[in-house]
């Protein structure tokens, strides 16, 4: 028997089946209902916008990594997830060149310049969306439904549709944010697959519900409109930009909820979810440090 065939490597010699790629694939699968809903509500251009963002994100990541002579990581599908999330955060009428600019900002500026996957402190899709809201204010607030008539999102003073229509998403808004049903299906899938835990989304949504109710708004409408569910389920649960501890997630969700309501009720912008998540992203390292578990049996550090 030849010993040279034997591989000597450190334990453990078995690994769990999931991988970065399988986790990202689960997020993609969880976004499919929202994608289908956006195509039904806003027409085929919804698919074009999302595909365009995904394409630009993947290409931007590939080119940047090649230029920097880093290993190419497009195979882990994280750029695909960023592209889908960004696309679903845009209005259907967005000019494609603006979507491309947003995608490049997300991948190159927010993600790769900070060291790539796991190293960015802000959510790429959220930050790119904010950059676009500020840079392309007009096209980013042009919300139209399938009849192609421009209309405002209900949050910015438009007429509020019935709760059932809100739940199904048949009203003006960003591509992926309107259909609550599709988003909740995706969220349940992610929790069931243990990709995310329920803490952040539930606390985030519950905080918005309670606070808007206390402030005299209609809490059901506040929860179902705008980017709340999309943000709470898919963006406030991003790994590298949110706390990983259980209590950290609760604090994160609470903070996001409070800031969202403050912006919506008292601020100049009709929508505050993106700003809330970005702000809490910045606080994440502090929340993580504060909520660290004390090691089992560990003596106190002097």
């Amino acid at each position: 028997m030849d010993n040279s065939m034997l591989l000597v490597s450190p334990s453990p010699h078995v690994r769990a089946r999931h991988s970065t790629r399988s986790i990202m694939l689960d997020v993609v699968i969880a976004l499919v209902p929202a994608l289908v809903a956006s195509a039904v509500i806003f027409g085929w251009r919804a698919l074009l916008v999302v595909a365009f963002c995904v394409g630009w994100c993947v290409v931007a990541e590939y080119i940047f990594e090649r230029i920097c002579k880093r290993p190419v990581t497009v195979g882990d599908l994280s750029a695909v997830v960023t592209g889908m999330l960004l696309g679903l955060n845009l209005p259907v009428s967005i000019p494609l060149w603006q979507a491309a600019v947003g995608s490049i900002v997300a991948i190159v500026v927010v993600k790769q310049l900070f060291g790539g996957i796991g190293r960015n402190f802000a959510n790429p899709a959220i930050t790119a969306r904010i950059v676009m809201v500020i840079s392309f204010a007009e096209s980013m607030s042009d919300f139209s439904v399938n009849d192609a008539v421009s209309s405002a999102t209900p949050l910015s003073g438009g007429e509020m549709p019935s709760v059932l229509r809100l739940f199904l998403g048949d009203y003006g808004g960003c591509l992926g944010e309107t259909c609550a049903l599709a988003l909740i299906i995706g969220g349940v899938y992610l929790v069931a697959r243990r990709v995310i835990t329920w803490h952040t989304p539930v606390v985030f949504v519950a905080t918005v519900f309670v606070l808007t109710w206390l402030l005299g708004e209609n809490p059901v409408e506040q929860v179902l409109t705008g980017g709340l569910l999309l943000g709470a389920i898919f963006m406030a649960t991003d790994y590298s930009t949110t706390p990983s501890t259980k209590w950290g997630k609760v604090i994160f969700g609470l903070g996001c909820g409070v800031i969202t309501v403050l912006i919506r009720v008292f601020g100049n912008y009709p929508e505050g979810v993106s700003f809330a998540i970005l702000f809490m992203n910045i606080l994440t390292p502090y929340i993580s440090t504060l909520t660290k578990r004390r090691p089992f049996g560990g003596a106190k550090v002097k």
């Binding site: 690994r15 994280s78 790539g116 796991g118």
Partner: peptide, 14 residues
Amino acid sequence: DATPPPETACIRCG
């Protein structure tokens, strides 16, 4: 079963 999978970047999943 024996070949260890390649190491990739930490995604800070916790």
